[in-house]
Simulated assay, not measured.
Amino acid sequence: MTNTLHRFGDRESLRNDYIIFAMAARGINDADAPPKLQAFLRLALRHNPINVGNAVKGGIFRASPRLTPLAHWRRREFVDPMEVVQSVQSCTTVSAVFDDPTRLESFLRDLKAADLGLSINIAALTDEARDCCQRAGITRHSVEYSLGFHGDLNLLPDRRVLELSTMCGHGMISHNFAKKMIDWVKEGRRDPPQAATYLAKFCTCGIYNTTRATRILEEARVGR
């Protein structure tokens, strides 16, 4: 997916970041796609992903639709993953995010056995995605690359902000919000996992990697 190609960071920063998608082709195999997409998500949940998503309805981390002064005490930090599964009622794109290649590999084995007839793609470091596929007995079909950022790079925000904000490929996490979370963590107003959860709520596709975000925020906190 092109929206996950532009996750900013060096190789070390991008370790343990694996996003896997399933989708149908409209007019070709979309008529009976919803049950298959639900099956994809159910299979993913067996392997403990850190996030799952429905591109239409959202992931397990969601912003509150009704903000009041009481929301800080009453709102849910995340929804039951089965709510995401059950929300797939039409042709859409679904996803799962893993922070462990062994779990991704096990999921790929299950997907191969299930043979859902859907298009599956993985967004990750290309060699790691290739190796996971090979170990699961899958031959990679094709590769899509991002050519990175071009132009006057001095106009871009700093590295930490880009690492956090570009994990939402649709630009729903603003640079200022990412910077605010970094500042709050440095000031001790929120710990890294809390700030990572806040950021993930605005990635409506459900592809935000809270494990990676927590690590980035912790590194910012200690000045690494």
Results as ranks from 00 to 15, higher is better:
G58A: 14
C205E: 01
A195F: 04
A71L: 12
D131G: 06
V222T: 15
P157H: 01
V79D: 02
G206T: 07
S13K: 11
A114H: 11
K112E: 00
R74W: 03
H72R: 15
T139G: 09
E187C: 01
D183G: 11
M181D: 08
E128W: 04
A96F: 00
L108G: 07
D32K: 15
T204V: 04
H47W: 06
S142H: 01
C91Q: 03
T93Y: 14
R221I: 12
A55T: 04
D10S: 11
R160P: 04
L70M: 03
R135L: 15
G206L: 00
S90D: 15
A31P: 04
V222D: 05
F40T: 07
H47R: 07
L153R: 08
E12I: 00
R11N: 14
T93S: 11
I60Y: 03
E218M: 12
V88N: 10
G59V: 09
C205K: 07
R15A: 10
K36F: 04
A39D: 07
M82C: 06
I207P: 10
K36M: 10
G151Q: 05
T2V: 06
R75L: 14
E218Q: 13
N3A: 10
R76S: 10
H6R: 09
L162W: 08
F98E: 04
H175P: 02
T92F: 06
L153I: 15
M181H: 09
T197D: 03
D191Q: 13
C132S: 14
S64M: 09
L153T: 13
L5K: 14
G59H: 03
P193Q: 07
W73S: 14
E83D: 13
F21E: 00
L199T: 09
C203Q: 05
V85C: 14
E219R: 12
Q89H: 07
G9P: 14
Y145S: 10
R189S: 08
A44S: 13
A123E: 06
C132E: 00
A39T: 09
H141F: 07
H47E: 05
Q86R: 15
R189W: 01
A25L: 12
V84R: 11
P34W: 08
A196E: 00
C205S: 10
I182N: 05
S106K: 12
S64C: 15
V222I: 15
V79C: 03
V85E: 07
G9W: 01
R46S: 09
L153H: 00
D100C: 01
T210G: 07
C168S: 06
R26W: 02
T211K: 05
R215A: 10
L111R: 09
R42Q: 11
A213K: 02
P101C: 02
I138C: 08
P101D: 05
L164H: 09
C168M: 06
G53R: 09
G151D: 06
I122H: 05
A129N: 04
P81K: 04
I182G: 08
P35N: 11
H72C: 01
T166R: 01
C91R: 12
I60M: 09
L162Q: 00
W73V: 14
D152F: 07
T102D: 10
H150Q: 02
L217T: 05
